[in-house]
Design a protein around this nucleic acid. Structure first.
Lengths: 194, 194
DNA sequence: ATGACCTTACTGAACGTTTGTTAGGTATCT
DNA sequence: AGATACCTAACAAACGTTCAGTAAGGTCAT
């Protein structure tokens, strides 16, 4: 792994943990065993480094779901698989997930647009297509948002949820969460068409 | 309004916008037209000020939903009203919402526990009770989480969602979002009991 | 093969600015 | 006289960034 890649990987983790202004160039340099000036040799300034780190992190995430869309099974099964994959990816790579949370919180409209169009649009479209198949008479955009919203909330608020009464350890298991969300959605679709 | 309250209100807005390390004591002092030392007269250090600002922001939010729970109507209607209130409160006070996002992202387990038990537990319990009424055979904790998750995602990701294809201006209207979420959930409950 | 030369990847030390925090002093009110 | 609410000015430390220099490796004419 080249020095530049090493810097970017470390930056992803540390920016996700501490935020943009919470991480100093000296801390990052220490983490990758380089001098501060060495980082400035690879990146013109802190802001560019941050942007490149975000881009680097988001680059290969979209491919994780491709096998879900390629598989030829029923729409119901596809939805179930997508939810499972989504939760798995997000739980596996928490640094990526935190960085994404940070971007949603702090990015300006321009960066937001870049994020949407560059990374997530294709996934969102496929999900909307699936939604139309499952519940043709409903708004696909709203439905797709609901699917992701349900899944994301369980991951994002996991550290808070465990302090609420009624919490059980199984509520942190990907399969349990995915199963609950899937049946919730599929039940809703069934009721609508009935 | 006393100087201390003025400092806290400004701190809520500015911490929500820039984050803990993104806001300097000088910037805050400038915003409230006081010297830096004046802030230190009211608060021992930056960290304590931040904690008190968070506490101050969360203090009166819980009361906003009380009228929902007190009203005597059907469980279905209560769910609809809670979702409406929740979305309205979060959309109205975006600073509060951003601060909450920040806390979920950055707080240590101890602060997380404080946040859960001190502010949200009572609301969550009432929601779980309602969930049990509507769908007795399902896990109340998972259901209550789903309700909040659906509502929160629409607010949190509003700046991103508008860049996805299929977006319409009405997707940002509280009534539309609330109606969609409510029917989604109620349909699901109906299917289960049928 | 060799010395001259360029590029690449880095280092240590310093630049000026901003940071959180404090010391010491001054009005105002009880 | 003492407490309260504030000020200016300063502190050391940390900040992003830059500059001058070095060691290594490849390229080229001689």
């Amino acid at each position: 792994m080249s020095s530049k890649e090493k810097i970017l990987s470390a930056a992803i983790v540390l920016f996700a943990q501490k935020g943009y202004s919470g991480l100093s160039m000296r801390q990052l340099a220490l983490a990758v065993n380089l001098s501060v000036a060495a980082i400035y040799h690879h990146f013109p300034d802190k802001n560019t480094l941050y942007l490149e780190a975000v881009r680097f992190a988001f680059l290969d995430k979209a491919q994780a779901f491709d096998q879900v869309w390629k598989s030829d099974c029923s729409a119901e099964e596809k939805l179930a698989r997508f939810i499972r994959s989504f939760i798995n990816v997000m739980l596996e790579d928490r640094d990526f997930h935190r960085l994404m949370q940070r971007e949603i919180l702090e990015a300006d409209p321009e960066r937001m647009q870049l994020l949407a169009q560059g990374v997530f649009t294709s996934q969102f479209c496929l999900l909307m297509q699936l939604a139309t198949e499952l519940a043709p008479e409903q708004d696909a955009h709203l439905l797709a948002t609901s699917v992701i919203g349900l899944a994301k909330y369980y991951i994002e608020y996991q550290p808070l949820l465990k302090y609420f009464p009624g919490w059980k350890p199984e509520h942190e298991m990907p399969e349990v969460i995915a199963a609950h969300i899937t049946t919730l959605l599929l039940n809703s679709f069934k009721a609508k068409t009935a």
